[in-house]
Design a protein around this nucleic acid. Sequence first.
DNA 1: TTCGTTTTGAGGTACGTAACTCAAAAAGGG
DNA 2: CCCTTTTTGAGTTACGTACCTCAAAACGAA
Lengths: 348, 348
Amino acid sequence: MATIIQKHGRATVRDVARAAGVSLATVDRVLNGRKGVRQSTIDKVEKAVADLNYTRDVSASLLARATSARIHFVLPAGANPFMHHLEAAVARQADIAAQARLAIEMSTVPALNAEALVEEIDRLADEKCDCAVIVATDDDAVRRAVARAQTKGMPTITLVSDLPQSKRRAFVGIDNEAAGRTAAALMGRFCPPHSQIGLIVGSLDLRDHRDRFVGFSEIMLDEFPGIEIIGPAEGFDDARETAKRANELLNDNPRLAGIYSVGAGNEGLLATLRQRISPGRIRVLVHELTDASREGLAAGYIDAVLNQNVDREAERAIALAQILAVHPTAELDRRPVEIGIYLRDNVI
Amino acid sequence: MATIIQKHGRATVRDVARAAGVSLATVDRVLNGRKGVRQSTIDKVEKAVADLNYTRDVSASLLARATSARIHFVLPAGANPFMHHLEAAVARQADIAAQARLAIEMSTVPALNAEALVEEIDRLADEKCDCAVIVATDDDAVRRAVARAQTKGMPTITLVSDLPQSKRRAFVGIDNEAAGRTAAALMGRFCPPHSQIGLIVGSLDLRDHRDRFVGFSEIMLDEFPGIEIIGPAEGFDDARETAKRANELLNDNPRLAGIYSVGAGNEGLLATLRQRISPGRIRVLVHELTDASREGLAAGYIDAVLNQNVDREAERAIALAQILAVHPTAELDRRPVEIGIYLRDNVI
DNA sequence: TTCGTTTTGAGGTACGTAACTCAAAAAGGG
DNA sequence: CCCTTTTTGAGTTACGTACCTCAAAACGAA
């Protein structure tokens, strides 16, 4: 009845050396990819590893590893609450990562400023940082900087906002088109078959916002053809501007059934809603769990929140960066981060 | 601009000993709770620990720890697909846990059989297992067995299905009333204000199903008073029975707008839907991502799935068990596991 | 004071890997 | 065959903690 899944008596490098008929030093050379070992010997060792089902003891490995890998996060400065959450998440994960001999550093550059980001990437590549994790601004100068860094031996990972067609080694974030499609699937079911839904984005120049809009439109046209999409209006991820856009939506469309807020600035949206309507009159869908969106959920002004879990993202970015720092040519897991859906009663 | 969040040069036990003006052995005694140290000395050491911000190096600690803690999972045998997923998740996490010097064992007992579960708990307690993790059957004999085990020094954690009013040290699972409330919030928005929603549970004798039903009813009556709840009918977590209940619901209520399937057996529900209606005609909400529910989502027969992440649950249970194994009187994190909501485009 | 008890110190070994040196052995080229 | 280069072996040190022993010191009570 009882099955022991794993017990602690695992094979060690000594066992591998004995099984392969070589010395400890040779096993070490093979395992850590040092040169000066004949291919036939490498094969012998790898066979022994496979036969004994040897896996590196992570605790011992970390303990013995003298130097910490340097992983550097570059985040947009003084941006919206979401970015502050992301920053906090990186700091939290940094504490955990320190146990794994990873030195996590963080710096900020002005938001939406490609030049500043480029400068920072170049600086990091020069001072032999092991891996950069950036919230990318979609700009060709940034693409070139990423390529330069890769040449100099520093791989780059994009976080939250991707940089397609670039030399970045991985993207950690949600699939924003899928997020838009999911938003449409919810809103389409929330609203009457013949109604109007207003869209507010931060800016259509932002890749993630554009992707969400594309996904949303696709499903709406396909599955809820009776529903009319109003907009998108641009709120520039700013509370005041977003409040204005929401006011305009309500003024111009008295029979509006829903609002999908694609970007940030939800404090402003919420303020307008509180001022203009009673909770539940129109269906409201926003992105990211923040103080404002939690409050909106609790008060009934917001029906659902699509969220990317920043802790999971920071953790994932660090895990991938660690792999790259140790094994620069490794194949990385390409799965996007999960899109969380929160209503009032399942917020965390 | 750049901020180093953590670097690797941390304080060690030697630093603590020096700062406290005591020997290494004394620091060791204090840190590991061994007896024979004067309170005034304990205070000195703890002050030094605080001053130096000392934290145990987990890698070294694990490496030095000779023995593995034994953590034993007891799951219901041959049950539904969800339980098989849970089993697989435990096995996956066991591999990871082995790195942390944890020996994860697993056994199965007949489902819904309190006597067999009691026997297994007693057996584990006698053979000095460090912690048991059980999917509880709600029965007083089980409560007594858990209490006996606790007396013998083996703490118990409940998984997925709780055992309230017992000596279990923690529960790892979702808040099922909150899940029911969330289901109602979705269904209430999905369906017209005056319509009928059919409920199918496994059994009202199952605590989690009853809790979900209670939460669902609460929100429905409160926020969607025009919607009528039909049932609940009992499908006994069985595909055939659940198919029959779904058929009956469709026969008896030609204007049914939605079905909320609270328990398992969704293969049966899906079969009936495929046979009787076209995708999207009625809104369908089920629990747990399984082959059947994924298929239903993809085909458009299921609108949304409420899910508990079994990997997260297994991981959490192991983490809590580890704390209990090392520090039996520790206070444990009481937060429930997150309730995931999945539509077609955000499944993982 | 003296005895017994409690508390503390000093020192050791072990865990499994990383990273290094130096010498010895094997391979390869002419 | 010798000579050079490459490959391998043997051994050491280090990482930070856990756990152990034995002796020395401090303490408390009579």
